[in-house]
């Protein structure tokens, strides 16, 4: 048996052991053809491979929805739980297991609607984990109901005349939360940016919140096609401390804004840009934010004699 120590997130591989992409792939994904989740799955498997994460030390926790099927397609440990409840489960997994690489896979309904309360608090707990919000702005698995991130006027089965409320902006909302430490946005159809974002998120010492704007070719084709096709629709937030693209990749974008991710007020301003464009990049990062998982792991490995000693001293208080 291995006694778990608080500080080893990076596991040295045994001599000669190497994981290939196939070592992370499980059964064939059952998402619809053209769904953005497929490219995210590829990108995540690439990240695991690049980082050589031991599959047994890696846990994908999801809720319910199209995106939440994700753990079934990884050959790691997975937890496909309840609608909206990926955050508390993932936090419970990480709390006393600093050695595990934890990923949360959640959708716009899962995170921003039924699980919104947990979203708020998970950001505040700031445990080291990567959170991927697959935001296709629609309820897909239940067949086209308005989601909290559906653009105003979205025609859906619950709002045939168009949705009647403005959407939640998950970036803006997350940036408003206490102890927030990493907020980024990317899109599923720009693999270079997606890969670079995931890598940056994985390296962050805290909770890395990544909203991935995702295509739903079945229910939201009209909504995404303009963004996907129009080179003017995306604005890159660029900075040496942000998501760094090589020159060639960066040149493919027409609009590039310099944005310093250490400035939360500027980050909140940038989050407002969504009305005109889709900003991608790192909005905000603070590597010094308090981490609740460090508190959770602080007394790991207390010796049994000491544990019994503490219980007995408490019991002494009740002794007759």
């Amino acid at each position: 048996m291995i006694a778990l120590q608080p500080d080893f997130c990076d596991i040295a591989l045994p001599e000669g052991e190497h994981y290939s992409i196939e070592d992370y792939a499980s059964s064939k994904a059952r998402w619809c053809s053209g769904c953005g989740a497929h490219t995210i799955l590829n990108s995540v498997q690439k990240l695991c491979n690049d980082k050589q994460l031991p599959p047994e030390k890696t846990v994908f926790v999801s809720g319910i929805g199209c995106s939440s099927r994700f753990p079934h397609y990884m050959k790691t440990y997975g937890f496909h739980g309840l609608h909206g409840r990926a955050f508390p489960v993932a936090c419970g997994v990480k709390f006393r297991r600093p050695d595990l690489n934890v990923f949360v896979i959640t959708g716009d309904g899962d995170c921003c609607s039924i699980g919104a309360g947990h979203w708020v608090h998970a950001i505040r707990y700031n445990m080291k984990m990567v959170v991927l919000l697959f935001d296709n702005a629609i309820y897909g698995l239940t067949k086209k109901q308005t989601s909290p991130t559906s653009p105003f006027g979205t025609v859906s089965n619950t709002h045939p005349a168009g949705s009647v409320l403005p959407p939640i902006n998950p970036i803006q909302a997350t940036l408003g939360l206490p102890n927030v430490s990493f907020v980024a946005q990317t899109v599923d159809w720009k693999p270079a940016h997606l890969n670079a974002t995931l890598k940056k998120a994985f390296d962050h010492p805290g909770l890395a919140f990544v909203r991935i704007v995702q295509r739903c070719p079945i229910w939201m084709r009209d909504s995404y096609e303009p963004t996907v096709k129009d080179p003017d629709a995306i604005t890159v937030l660029n900075h040496e401390n942000g998501i760094v693209l090589d020159e060639k990749a960066l040149k493919k974008f027409r609009h590039v804004n310099e944005h310093d991710p250490s400035d939360i007020l500027k980050a909140r301003e940038a989050a407002e840009m969504v009305k005109e464009t889709t900003p991608i990049g790192l909005f905000y990062q603070n590597k010094e934010a308090i981490r609740y998982d460090e508190y959770g792991a602080h007394n790991l490995g207390t010796a049994v004699e000491d544990r019994i000693g503490a219980i007995n001293s408490m019991m002494d208080r009740y002794a007759i």
Partner: peptide, 26 residues
């Protein structure tokens, strides 16, 4: 905490059991 454990005061009742389940799973 001296007895080797820890209390997590969750954000709600649902999160409290979800967190416990996550810990147990791990």
């Amino acid at each position: 905490e001296s007895a080797g454990g820890i209390i997590h005061q969750a954000e709600d009742e649902i999160a409290a059991i979800g967190f416990a389940i996550g810990a147990s799973y791990a």
